[in-house]
Nucleic acid binder design. Structure first.
Lengths: 220, 220
DNA sequence: ATTACTAAGCAGCGAGTAA
DNA sequence: TTTACTCGCTGCTTAGTAA
């Protein structure tokens, strides 16, 4: 959606056009938007074309109401601003399901991790992790997360090797509860690993390439 | 502020740039905004020019943080969306102080009105109204108001004439409590009349031409 | 008064490229 | 890799104007 159309839609919404028809001329709208009458008129036509408003053209003025589609767009925008200012104890990611190469299963079966998961998270994970690939740029959000803490799982040693400490965050994937596991060290990876008492891939009917929505909840 | 700059600022904020420095290249930003690297770079320069972000240019990437000015712009935007979706029991106006021609005083001194004000609003108004001129286009908001009700003051007759019924709405002008009085009949006027137990013009140090913010609170 | 067309001008876009 | 310049081209804007 073009930014100037969004602005126009918001202006109409502020005049009450979400729930009522609003009487406004292209000239008046132009004044509100600080642009010309011609441009305002064109904006209204464009919004009409993409079915975000309905218009009743009279001989003078026009009655405008925002449609369901238009209201959805505004709500999405509103939710992003809430994300910025209100829900700073939540961090959201979009990503898509990918397969690991069995390392998830290997790690989630280590006694040293499992015992701590039981103690600190309250469950033993289903063997294996659900891997979600996120956009590289979202590592900025991951950095936020690491600063905020999370539930620490300590490192431990077996006779063969050392298993590094990890940070856990309560999260939801497509609204289903689970836990995100991030290696405490290591640089940023574009894969988020999800553990849960259940086999999430089956429970959520997910296959590789599916788009998912992840929301992480910060404790403090 | 140009709409596309606002969108860019919002995108940066979603990555956490309000409270943290965010590491991002113009190419990555371009991908987020679905535009070209050159355009993203130009956007960042423009935002920098108007002091809405600070940049630390490294040889790779850049560290970006939103400034106080930038955060203000985003908050204003957020507040408008709240207006649309949350505070639909509030209606806000901007306007400027104007002088009436003494009619306010004439009306607010009529026994027929004063007695009803005392009974239904709980105070006798200071004689005279504080008049605020609003943008003509905001009559759309006034129409919303009238549909929602308000406190009705009934018409009454003296031996000389009839005084029409009016609708009262609890409101704040520059955060100071008072009551907006709208004639029940009559077409839309671009003047809002404010009554209060106090002499508001003095209490708020207002003079003609001053910009004020009015918020009307709907009961139900 | 309106809305909205045409036409011309100009701002913004992005390919190419330098540093 | 980066950022950001130039410059040609596209598309948005607006003056003029018809209906």
């Amino acid at each position: 959606m073009k930014p100037y159309l969004l602005q126009t839609l918001k202006e109409l919404a502020l005049l009450g056009a979400v729930s009522n028809r609003v009487e406004i001329s292209s000239h008046e709208l132009a004044k509100q938007l600080e642009t010309s009458q011609q441009t305002a008129s064109r904006y209204l036509m464009e919004l009409d074309n993409v079915q975000m408003i309905t218009r009743e053209l009279g001989i003078k003025k026009q009655l405008i109401q925002i449609t369901g589609i238009g209201a959805e767009v505004l709500k999405e925008e509103y939710s992003q601003y809430r994300q910025i200012f209100e829900l700073s104890n939540r961090v959201a990611f979009r990503g898509k399901i990918v397969s690991g190469m069995g390392e998830g299963k290997y790690y989630t079966e280590q006694r040293g991790y499992v015992d701590q998961f039981k103690e600190k998270l309250g469950f033993a994970p289903y063997p294996g992790t659900l891997n979600v690939e996120i956009e590289y740029v979202e590592r900025n959000k991951l950095r936020l997360l690491k600063n905020y803490g999370g539930i620490a799982i300590d490192e431990f040693k077996t006779k063969n090797r050392t298993f590094g400490s990890v940070l856990c965050f309560n999260a939801k994937i497509n609204n289903c509860i689970g836990v995100i596991v991030l290696p405490k060290r290591s640089h940023y990876s574009n894969i988020l690993e999800f553990i849960s008492p259940h086999y999430l891939r089956e429970k959520l009917h997910l296959k590789d390439g599916d788009e998912v929505e992840i929301v992480i909840y910060l404790e403090k």
